[in-house]
């Protein structure tokens, strides 16, 4: 039998929640009829599509940059390490809004971009505005910013893999690229996937900032525009929120699947139980020596 205070608190909180629900249903100002009217409006659905496209494209760019810079930072080449460090320093150190405005102004800053040898001959060139349109500027801005955050996540994932795995694989004659691809990255994914899932969900909502570029087709901008035009901002905010919640829920399912896949061989038990299950006292002592760490929550820095 729970103590009386448990009942008291349950009662207070239930009362507050019920009050909130009843106000949502009874307050006419929410205009649920307008929400229903616009939820599947073609402009809104297209906006959802653009938001998804921005999210996926930005995350792909971010992941590629993150893996590259994480490997650069862990390597021995001082130039590569320095460049990777500076990239992370700059893109984590400035607001993503500022960066998006900057990418939108790129064609003002550089009307033409040419590819060639610095101070030397030029191979080809293009008008910036033709290639870096608002959509490209938006995914570049989001992707470059995301890469800096993901880089730290990837690095901590790679670091979490026991050095013995490198040794065993190289002792078998594998090249370091093979070791990374076949042995280290698949294990690092266990540590990388959960925070990357969070980053993806966060990115879904950060896409609303591409207004700064300006890119005006994604869901937040579209619903705001409709809401302002009709003088009904609240129901259209609710439309956007419902869509964000729907996509987030799907992303969470995907994340769970990925975690299950990369957790194979680890039995999906909580890390402590898993590590010590069926393990001898002596091995427990070895594990306790701290030369191995498998805690997925270590060193995650965003």
């Amino acid at each position: 039998m729970p103590r009386p205070t448990v009942w008291v608190w349950a009662g207070i909180v239930s009362f507050l929640v019920l009050g909130l629900i009843s106000s949502l249903l009874e307050n006419k100002n929410y205009r649920w009829d307008v929400v229903a009217q616009y939820l599947f409006d073609p402009r809104v659905v297209a906006g959802v599509g653009w938001t998804l496209l921005l999210t996926v494209a930005a995350m792909v760019i971010g992941i590629v940059l993150a893996v590259a810079t994480a490997i650069m930072r862990m390597g021995t080449n001082p130039i590569l390490r320095g460049v990777a460090w500076a990239y992370i320093w700059f893109f984590r150190g400035t607001p993503v809004y500022t960066q998006l405005v900057f990418w939108g102004l790129l064609s003002v800053l550089y009307p033409r971009i040419s590819v060639g040898i610095p101070f030397g001959p030029e191979f080809f060139s293009f008008t910036t505005q033709d290639v870096v349109n608002a959509f490209v500027a938006a995914i570049l801005g989001l992707g470059l910013n995301e890469g800096a955050y993901l880089s730290e996540i990837v690095r901590s994932g790679l670091n979490s893999v026991d050095r013995g795995q490198w040794e065993a694989a190289t002792a078998l004659g594998m090249k370091s690229s093979t070791v990374l691809r076949r042995i280290v990255i698949p294990q690092a994914m266990r540590v990388i996937v959960p925070p990357t899932g969070n980053e993806t969900i966060s990115m879904l909502k950060t896409t609303s900032l591409v207004l700064a570029v300006p890119f005006m087709l994604e869901i937040t901008f579209v619903t705001n525009a409709i809401g302002n035009k009709n003088f009904l901002p609240v129901p259209l905010l609710i439309v956007a929120a419902l869509w964000y919640l729907f996509i987030t829920s799907i992303l969470m399912i995907g994340q769970q699947r990925l975690e299950a896949y990369y957790g194979r061989g680890f039995d999906g038990e909580p890390s402590q139980n898993r590590r010590l299950r069926g393990v001898s006292k002596r091995q427990q002592a070895i594990l306790a020596a701290g030369t191995v760490h498998t805690d997925p929550n270590l060193d995650v820095t965003p």
Binding site: E167, A168, G173, Q187, G265, F266
Partner: peptide, 24 residues
Amino acid sequence: DAQIARQRSRIGMVFQRFNLFPHM
């Protein structure tokens, strides 16, 4: 490095902590 990897591939090594690949 490629030559060193080739030389290593002809020598088997067994470690104190086994170092099996846990995801396989």
